[in-house]
Write a protein that binds this DNA or RNA. Structure first.
Lengths: 189, 189
DNA sequence: AACTAAAACTAACAAGTGTTAGTTTAATAT
DNA sequence: ATATTAAACTAACACTTGTTAGTTTTAGTT
């Protein structure tokens, strides 16, 4: 099993609740109740509600940043890099379903680390865009609007947390392949 | 200009605030302040905070339902129907940027009308899926996983409210064409 | 000028908010 | 058995929440 501190359990429980109602609508008493303790007891393990949110979001954002760096610096073709980005999103999302919901919906409630998060996100998008632009230059991709391509792919990848859980016994590898196909080659015959 | 009742102004102002922080984090005092009045005064025009949310979301959901009905019942090819769905989303989103944010992020805070909203959404997705399945049968679309195709298109279309505002002087028609191209034909050369 | 109706106001409510202080219990190490 | 520490508890705080009641102001009509 995992090495699970009590703090980790609080964060995990919080993420589940955050997905259902969003950060603002979840109270410390809600979180405590879900763990079978009183709200005040939470503070033996965490500093604040804000810290819970921050741990969830920043940890995920840094994972994406780290993996993007590897993809970016590889010598693969642009198409292959895009496929690796798809796989990256599917993998992280399948392992962090609830947390991904906060990453997508609750980031604006970050306080101290909001700026840092926005920086990571902007850098990620820039790296993504560069890969697309390189693909166009190298004649791998159609000569279309890179902004629209980025938007389309990233929107889909960021919504994975909504759809992945609906497919119970999902073959992650197969799904990744199918999704890459649709995102890159479209659906037209 | 528009026929704008005071109630409409409240709803519009609320939608702007809801986009920034989400329904739960916006207080009646926030809304009042943005309108230059006191919170209690809002209740001369609306019944509750819940009513504001409901007006925003149900009105939009019904617009989508209504238009989907027209597309569904037309005699156009599946590809053309899909293009019309893309146009539908771009049009409604470009005219209701803030409201679309609530539709996507705050629907779970609906109370009395939650069930009704979920029904509308489910029906919409089913109609969308049927069009894709028909396209596969008729050999218009690749013989892929229709669920993945639906997911990919719908995720992108539902995220439009995040991206459209970033492009200030956007040619809506051109954007619709570009987006349809990417969603249907992909980005591969 | 007097009347009316819409829309603002002040004041307050009961309930809920995140968080702190101080205390007790449970589990572990000596 | 005793001391120690982690983790729970109770009680309370200062503040914010949506909302109501009752009143005053504003603007348009007779």
């Amino acid at each position: 099993m995992k090495y699970d501190t009590r703090k980790d359990q609080i964060i995990q429980t919080s993420a589940i609740l955050f997905q259902k109602k969003g950060f603002s609508a979840v109270t410390m008493r809600d979180i405590a109740k879900a763990m079978g303790i009183k709200a005040a007891s939470l503070y033996n393990h965490i500093k604040s509600k804000q810290e819970i949110l921050s741990e969830i979001i920043i940890s995920l954002a840094e994972q994406f940043t780290e993996q993007m760096k590897i993809i970016k610096n590889s010598n693969d073709s642009s198409i292959d890099k895009l496929k690796q980005i798809v796989a990256l999103h599917v993998n992280i999302t399948s392992k962090n379903q609830f947390e991904m919901s906060s990453l997508n919906s609750d980031w604006m409630h970050l306080e101290a680390e909001l700026e840092y998060y926005l920086k990571l996100r902007k850098n990620y998008e820039n790296d993504f865009r560069s890969i697309i632009e390189k693909g166009i230059q190298d004649n791998e991709l159609i000569n279309g609007n890179p902004e629209v391509m980025l938007f389309s792919m990233l929107s889909t990848l960021r919504s994975l947390y909504i759809w992945l859980p609906k497919k119970e016994d999902l073959d992650i590898g197969k799904f990744t392949t199918e999704l890459s196909l649709v995102l890159i080659n479209g659906i037209n015959k």
